[in-house]
């Protein structure tokens, strides 16, 4: 690069190394039948998974089929709004500036009655008291703000129950 002869007026001018440009994208999302059912139920403040007819595992959010058995999951199962922390991470990195006060906890939560954990936030507890096996409950946004998205659950918080035994969730830990 150094052998390029610059015109006199550009000599001594700091070269441009890169420029930053902004892009914005809006997507149309088609969830399909199983996820549509799930999101419609979320709108009614209900969490509904689907059970595999072969392995009997309950998936949430349901995708309409079992990835292990490759069969449709038709049977719907209403789940509690409580669950167990299977594992977690204390986040000290300011990812979404101003949205979250750090440190905060992201956890894999296995909802009661389901067989696969979902990722969500843990709040209303000091971050250094969060632990595997902790029992938690969903805190929903105000009724008027509930819509067809899992963001309708603001976060999970401890519900005061004794810890779940390791054996009860270790399959997903």
């Amino acid at each position: 690069m150094s052998d390029i002869q610059l015109p006199e007026r550009l000599e001594g001018v700091e070269p441009v190394r890169s420029i930053r440009t902004f892009a914005s994208l809006t997507y149309q999302y088609t969830p399909g039948r199983a996820a549509s059912r799930f999101l419609k139920e979320v709108e009614r403040k209900r969490l509904v998974g689907q059970r595999c007819p072969v392995c009997k595992k309950v998936y949430v959010p349901p995708r309409g089929s079992c990835p292990t058995d490759g069969v449709a999951t038709e049977e719907e199962v209403e789940l509690g709004h409580t669950g167990t922390i299977v594992s977690f991470c204390v986040v000290n990195v300011p990812f979404m500036a101003n949205l979250m006060e750090i440190p905060y906890v992201g956890a894999l939560i296995q909802l009661d009655g389901s067989d696969i954990p979902i990722m969500h936030l843990i709040q209303e507890v000091p971050y250094d008291e969060v632990h595997m096996g902790m029992r938690v409950e969903a805190v929903w946004v105000p009724d008027g703000e509930i819509s067809h998205t899992l963001e309708s659950i603001k976060y999970f918080r401890p519900n005061g129950e004794p810890d779940a035994p390791y054996d009860s969730y270790k399959e997903n830990a």
Binding site: Y29, P31, A35, F38, L39, P61, C89, V91, V93, F95, M96, L99, M100, G106, I118, M119, H120, L121, H148, T149, L150, E151, I153
Partner: peptide
């Protein structure tokens, strides 16, 4: 819409 917000990289 079916994924909760995580923001943790």
């Amino acid at each position: 819409p079916f994924q909760p917000p995580m923001h943790a990289g």
